[in-house]
Amino acid sequence: MVSLVRQYFFSWVIVGLLVGLTGCATAPPRGPVPAPEPATVSQKNVVVALLDQAQGEHRRGDTARAAASLERALRIEPRNPVIWHRLARLRMEQGDYAQAQSLAAKSNALAPTDAQLRSQNWQLIGEARRRSGDRRGAEEAFARAQSVLEP
């Protein structure tokens, strides 16, 4: 239970950060605030433990180690779109916008039916594009972040 709360916490911190940052820009079309990730990111204890560990490292400001832990989780579950999404967020924080976009796209490719996660990925892609100066691309991505949530 504690780990779940931590997971939520992590998600919300990042989401909040993203929303705050997008707010600073000249109001690009934005989707609704993405819902937190599904409670069970993985059926495997080991992956949950590694994601917990990554969150702890991230909280302590050690992004390099947090990334290493996420990569470790990906070695165990390479087709888990949530892990790819988290790595994308981390790269975003590290200022690597190209990787943030690619990793979010990878997450999308593995989550064809998870509308929430897809929306978050598009949101992230939009933000990465905006920060790297691709305003039109950003708008497109934000639009998709919204449209994937529509039934």
């Binding site: 390099a64 990569e71 990787q99 690619s102 796209a105």
Partner: peptide, 16 residues
């Protein structure tokens, strides 16, 4: 002491 990491890098080369 860590000197260098070789992180996972991904590039979309073709549409899925």
């Amino acid at each position: 002491a860590p000197l260098q990491r070789y992180p996972l890098a991904v590039e979309q080369a073709a549409a899925p």
